[in-house]
Design a protein around this nucleic acid. Structure first.
Lengths: 213, 213
DNA sequence: TAATCTTGTATCTAAAATGTATCTAAAAGA
DNA sequence: TCTTTTAGATACATTTTAGATACAAGATTA
C-alpha cells in the first residue's frame, strides 16, 4: 500500500484530501506546516508527497529540495492564479501540480498517474520508455520522438484501456481548450508510424482513440 | 581503504555503526565525546566523519567547524524530531544526515554516496577532474575552466543520466530563480567546445540538457 | 590604473517541431 | 450502392528553439 504525505496548512483541505485518498487505499501522513513537513520527509519513507507551495513561514521550494534529495515524487497543490509558481514548480522538478479548488476524482487520478509514471522504465510489448531520459526504444532500437509526441505517448499509456476523446487529449497534452483542427489526429498518426502502434492505438470512430493494454 | 571517524557518545550505537561499516571494508576510529572527537579531527586524516550533533558538554556544530577546516566530509547523526538541527546542519555544510534509528543498509548507502561525491578525482571517458584543485584534464592536457563553467560541469556530472531543465540548472548553478535568458545555453556551448563534450551533453529539445553516462 | 579575464546580452542563423491545407481512403447510414 | 462524414497521409509553411558569434559590462589581477 502506498504512503502519502500531505503538507498543507489549511486543515480542512488537508482533511478532505486525506479522506479521498484513504478511500482509494492510500495511507496518509499530515504535516500542517513546513517545519513538520521537513521533519516527515527526512524521517520517513513516502511514495508520494502532496505539497502546498504557499506555506506560512516556509518556502515550499525548500521542501521540494528535500523531497528531491530523498527522490520522492511530488505533486504541487497551488491556488488559482499562482500560475508562475506552477510553472516554476514543474520546471524545478515537481512531477505534477493541481489547482485549488479541485475535484477529488482529479486528485486521485493524478496521484495514481504520478505513482505509475515514477517508475523509471515503462515496459510495453515491444516498447520501452525511459522516463528519466525521455528515450523510447522499439525492440531495443531508439526511436527519436519530438516533445509533443513523447507527451502524447505518455498520456495515452497512462490512460491505456480507456477511450480518450480528442478534446481530452488536447486538454491534457496541449493544454488547449477547444479546437476544430486535426492536430490530434496528425500526431496520433505520427506516433503510430514511428513506433509501429497501428494496432495498439485504435481509432474509435467519431469519438476518439484507445490505447490498448 | 577509507578511514571513518565516528563521534557518538552512545557506545552501543557507535559499536553497531562500526560493525556495519567494517563489514563493508571501512576502517573505523571512535570518539565517545566531543573533546576526543576534536583531537582526532585535528590529529588524523579521515575520509569521512559521522557526527552525532547532540553530544553532552559539547556542541556538535563546533566539531563541524573543525571538520570543515580540514575539509573532511561530514554526515550528521540525529535523533528523531531534531529537525531544526538537521536543517541547520545541512545549511552549515554537513554533506548528509541520517536519522536515528536507521537501517544499517541506509547508513552504508549514504556513506558510499558521500564518499563518491567527495572523491578527489572524477574520471570520465577522456576527462579527469580534480575536485581539490578544480583542475580539468582532457586526455591529460589541462583545460582551464572559469568558475561557472566548472560548477556547471560538476552539476551536470553529478546528475548524469537525468534530464535537467534550464530552470533546474539555473537554480543550482546560478542560484537564480527564474530567467528568460540564454545564459545556460551559452555556458553549455562553452563547456561542449572546451571539453569536446558535443556528444556527451545532449540537448533535449524544448526541455533542457542531459549528461550521458 | 591598465590589462586581462569572466560573464552574460544581443543578434543572426540553422535546425527542429508543429500545425494547416489538401487530397485520398475508409466507415456509416440511407 | 451511393452519399456523406470522418480519419489517414503527405507536403509544406510557419513558428519555435538552440547554436554561434560578437561584444559590452563587470570583476579580477598585475
Amino acid at each position: 500500500m502506498s504512503k502519502i504525505l500531505i503538507v498543507e496548512d489549511e486543515k480542512s483541505i488537508a482533511d478532505l484530501i486525506a479522506m479521498g485518498l484513504k478511500a482509494n487505499g492510500y495511507e496518509i501522513d499530515f504535516a500542517l506546516d513546513g517545519g513538520v513537513g521537513a521533519d516527515c520527509i527526512m524521517d520517513h519513507h513516502y511514495d508520494l508527497i502532496l505539497l502546498d507551495i504557499m506555506l506560512p513561514n516556509y518556502d515550499g521550494y525548500e521542501l521540494l529540495e528535500y523531497a528531491r534529495r530523498e527522490s520522492f515524487p511530488v505533486i504541487f497543490i497551488t491556488a488559482k492564479g499562482e500560475v508562475k509558481d506552477k510553472v516554476k514548480g514543474l520546471n524545478m522538478g515537481a512531477d505534477d501540480y493541481i489547482v485549488k479548488p479541485f475535484e477529488m476524482e482529479e486528485l486521485v487520478a493524478r496521484v495514481n498517474s504520478v505513482l505509475r509514471r515514477y517508475k523509471a522504465v515503462i515496459n510495453l510489448p515491444n516498447i520501452k520508455i525511459n522516463t528519466k531520459t525521455r528515450q523510447v526504444f522499439v525492440q531495443d532500437k531508439e526511436i527519436k520522438l519530438t516533445p509533443k509526441e513523447y507527451d502524447l505517448l505518455i498520456y495515452l499509456e497512462e490512460n491505456g484501456g480507456t477511450i480518450l476523446t480528442r478534446e481530452q487529449i488536447l486538454f491534457h497534452v496541449w493544454d488547449a481548450d477547444f479546437d476544430e483542427t486535426r492536430t490530434v489526429d496528425l500526431h496520433i498518426g505520427r506516433l503510430r508510424q514511428k513506433l509501429g502502434l497501428e494496432d495498439v492505438i485504435k481509432t474509435i470512430y467519431k469519438i476518439g482513440y484507445l490505447f490498448e493494454v
